[in-house]
Design a protein around this nucleic acid. Structure first.
Length: 388
DNA sequence: AAGCCTTTCAACCGCCAACGT
DNA sequence: GACGTTGGCGGTTGAAAGGCT
């Protein structure tokens, strides 16, 4: 079976590394508007977005033009190479894989934030004993937690905790059986014995072995210590129905696209009203850097420049409007009072710095609260808006 | 205060299987 | 059936944060 590999982002000149709040905002806005059901469909919108890049090339100067050139180059790559896995959204030069990961691991509104509870940790330890490094399956049992998060917490905390537990178990067993259960277990020496006897629970070097054993879903060595009331065989069946008992609360990252009946899977998102100013803010670096030059540029809609600052604002507005149209987000902002209310609702006041930007607000408030507070304004989802 | 070490975790890499043509 | 594309997954990495000396 062919397994073509998606080209590396770097090969197409896409962004890598940490996501900026601006990028988060764009991704959230996009998904809010269009959903995340089909990552592969996103590149198909390149044709529409290309218009903006074209405009940027023709009308912008300086850094803005550079951004346009980068975007345009991306579209050229698209045109020449067939649909890749790239999501070349305006100003969001990330590959689809990166977007998906960011969304699943960080931006999803149903994610829990904060430390793991004791119950969650116990669940992870128990499930890891049964399933090994099947992080996505473990995550399916912990609503609001991602496989990546669980993997991290296991490697940093729980692995040690589980190892310690194994030691204690071994000690207890040794004492109960008259002390002949292997070598006398001391806290310092038990680590090796525990890792060798329980290949699927918590050994420091278990990841490789785990991976090897878990390759075969039919072979699951369950540690007696952790054999409890969960039916592992059900969890090892990929059929969503089998996992339903464990997944009743919500979809995990791994099941995000397969659960809840499919139906395009437009999960409930906090409706965040994207006002033009926000785009201005998130484009701050570009606007700041090129605003003056934009004033000199004759943006199509602005006509004659009045003053440098005013013309710069007008040109920037035009640019932002164009951007939003391309993203399907644009609509005449006829209700600024509602948006003001929105901000007042959250007690944030005017947006202006990173602590008050929508992304920060989103997480400070918490997904659920944010959803409740931000749901005042309905944003229509119009698939037809994809093609402008 | 400065430098070093450790911990944490977001992001990337590469493989695999499912899917589409 | 062959092949390319895509999404998902687990392992790994490296930057940032925090702690220690």
């Amino acid at each position: 079976m062919g397994r073509g590999r998606a080209p590396c982002c770097a090969k197409v000149g896409l962004n890598r590394g940490s996501w900026t709040p601006q990028e988060d905002m764009r991704l959230m806005a996009y998904i809010q508007k269009h959903g995340h059901s089909n990552w592969r469909a996103l590149p198909k919108q390149a044709g529409s977005l290309a218009a903006t890049a074209s405009w940027a090339l023709q009308n912008a100067h300086g850094e803005l033009q550079e951004a346009g050139e980068r975007i345009a180059a991306g579209f050229v790559a698209f045109a020449d190479r067939s649909p890749l896995t790239c999501c070349l959204w305006v100003g969001l030069l990330r590959c689809g894989k990166s977007c998906r990961l960011r969304w699943i691991n960080y931006l999803r509104p149903d994610l829990k934030r904060g430390n793991f509870t004791v119950e969650e940790e116990e669940t992870i330890i128990r499930l890891h004993g049964m399933l090994g490094n099947k992080w996505s399956k473990i995550a399916a049992c912990l609503p609001g937690r991602t496989d990546n998060e669980i993997k991290n917490v296991w490697n940093t905390n729980l692995k040690k905790k589980a190892a310690l537990r194994e030691q204690q178990k071994a000690q207890n067993d040794g004492a109960a059986s008259g002390g002949d259960a292997g070598t006398p277990v001391t806290p310092s020496s038990s680590a090796s014995s525990s890792t060798t006897t329980t290949n699927n629970s918590s050994g420091g070097s278990d990841s490789g072995d785990q991976c090897g054993t878990s390759k075969d879903p039919d072979v699951v060595t369950v540690s007696p210590l952790q054999l409890e009331d969960i039916d592992v065989s059900e969890m090892l069946v990929d059929a969503p129905a089998a996992a339903q008992p464990m997944l009743s609360a919500s979809c995990s990252s791994s099941s995000l696209t397969t659960c809840a009946g499919g139906a395009e899977d437009l999960i409930e998102l906090p409706v965040i009203d994207i006002e033009p100013d926000i785009w201005g803010i998130i484009d701050g670096e570009i606007a700041d850097a090129s605003g003056a030059r934009l004033g000199d540029a004759t943006a199509p809609c602005t006509g004659a420049a009045v003053s440098t600052s005013e013309a710069g604002e007008a040109a920037n507005d035009w640019w932002l409007e164009n951007l939003e149209k391309e993203l399907g987000l644009w609509g005449p902002t006829e209700d600024p009072p509602a948006q003001t209310d929105l901000l007042d609702h959250t007690g944030l006041g005017p947006l202006g710095d990173s602590e008050r930007d929508p992304v920060s607000t989103y997480f400070q408030t918490g997904p659920d609260n944010a959803a409740a507070e931000l749901l005042d304004v309905e944003l229509e989802l119009e698939p037809s808006a994809l093609l402008l």
